[in-house]
């Protein structure tokens, strides 16, 4: 049991930082519950910081760029080895 748990992890890259998480979980759960990112999305209407709220596909606050594709509901995507994840945060100079 412990052996399989050890093997059942994947490593994803969150904003260029490798994060190792259990296999089978969502990208949102990895970024929020393991990487502890805080703000993951900047609301385009009022510019306020946001983070995943419902984690089950309802609220659209977890939108991130996954493998180059923006605005993906990250709570509905399962982590995969080597996945490249970027928070959609509007910081000065960032595009």
């Amino acid at each position: 049991m412990e052996k399989s748990e050890h093997n059942d992890t994947v490593t994803i890259l969150v904003d260029d930082i490798p994060v190792t998480v259990p296999a089978g979980i969502s990208v949102a759960a990895a970024v929020l519950g393991h990487h502890h990112a805080g703000e993951t999305y900047t609301n385009p209407v009022d510019g306020s910081p946001r983070a995943p709220y419902c984690l089950m596909g309802v609220c659209f606050e977890c939108m991130m760029e996954i493998n180059g594709e923006p605005n993906i509901q990250s709570c509905l995507v399962t982590v995969e080895e080597g996945m490249i994840v970027k928070r959609q945060v509007a910081t000065a100079g960032a595009k």
Binding site: V21, I25, A29, L32, G33, H34, P49, P52, Y53
Partner: peptide, 22 residues
């Protein structure tokens, strides 16, 4: 809307994904 505020259901999903809230 502030990061750090979330639904209890969402929080439970984080725990059930092997994560922590803080």
């Amino acid at each position: 809307t502030l990061p750090g505020v979330l639904g209890a259901g969402g929080a439970d999903i984080l725990l059930r994904s092997g994560g922590t809230l803080l």
